[in-house]
């Protein structure tokens, strides 16, 4: 589905140049949910923006479904780090969700129907006529997810999507993502700095080194398919893996482990 090879991205030129990510290689299979975890500033957002075709890498390449990514590819949706700023305050919640459909779906009524369906899928039926700024942070984040899902993307990129909501809401949103991925034919790449989250939602956890980000480890998550916030997090396998990820994230060592 997604092949990232030796991806490097530097900002600035000459002596002031700063490498955000360096020689990152990873591959994601169709239908997988891969967590990318790493300390703040290690280049997670940069990696995601390169994959989304929003910025060009300075080295290496991204191939999505066999096609090299140069510009924003079709069938992609993103939920960026700051949901409050990614929703448009001049549009109602429904129109926000319907907006990306303007590229793909003809007819205002059809788009409204699709938007309402997408809102219902994230348990937000009935708030379509409100404005985003009239909703709580957790609800706004669900709107951003509904909008990303409305165009039925093949690949969903999420950048620290639950960064600024309370713990309870965060767990609900994690379960929402797990449900979406069960119900749809979708591949998800989720960036987070929360170690528990990376293990809880992921099929695989990719750990990045502190900047410049490289792949420190690529660990499979061997946990039962159906996950539960309390039961799963008490499983010995969960505890072992989260401890290992935690150790890798904290260590100063930047060599790749396998």
């Amino acid at each position: 589905m997604l092949e990232v090879t030796n991806l490097t991205r530097a900002f600035g030129h000459g002596a002031a140049a700063h490498t955000a990510i360096e020689a990152v290689s990873l591959s994601v299979a169709h239908g997988e949910l891969v967590s990318i975890v790493g300390p703040s500033g290690c280049g997670k957002s940069t990696l995601l923006r390169c994959i989304a075709g929003l910025i060009a890498p300075t080295g290496g390449r991204v191939v999505l479904r066999g096609v090299p990514v140069h510009d924003v590819p079709d069938g992609l949706a993103v939920v960026l780090q700051d949901y409050g700023r990614s929703l448009y305050p001049w549009l109602t919640v429904r129109d926000n969700v319907a907006l990306p459909l303007r590229r793909t779906l003809r007819g205002r009524a059809a788009r409204r129907t699709a938007a309402d369906a997408s809102l219902a899928a994230v348990a937000l039926a009935g708030v379509g006529d409100k404005y985003p700024w009239q909703l709580s942070g957790g609800m706004q984040q669900r709107v951003a997810i509904a909008r990303a899902l409305a165009c039925d993307p093949a690949l969903l990129l999420m950048d620290e999507p639950f960064g600024s909501v309370d713990a309870q809401t965060r767990e609900d949103l994690e379960d929402l993502v797990l449900r979406v991925r069960r119900e749809r034919d979708i591949t998800i790449l989720l960036v987070t700095h929360d170690i528990d989250e990376s293990v809880y939602v992921g099929d695989r956890v990719i750990v990045l080194t502190p900047g410049p980000g490289r792949v420190r480890a690529d660990l499979p998550v061997r946990l039962p398919e159906s996950r539960d916030q309390i039961i799963t997090k008490e499983l010995p396998d969960f505890v072992r893996l989260r401890t290992e990820v935690s150790r890798l994230v904290r260590s100063r060592d930047t060599r790749a482990v396998s």
Binding site: R49, A52, L54, V72, P73, D74, L76, A77, V78, L80, Q81, D82, R85, S86, Y88, L99, P100, R103, C151
Partner: peptide
């Protein structure tokens, strides 16, 4: 204009 707002829009392929 918020850069996040613009970038999100562009990421939808506009």
């Amino acid at each position: 204009v918020d850069p996040v707002a613009k970038e999100t829009h562009r990421a939808f392929g506009f």
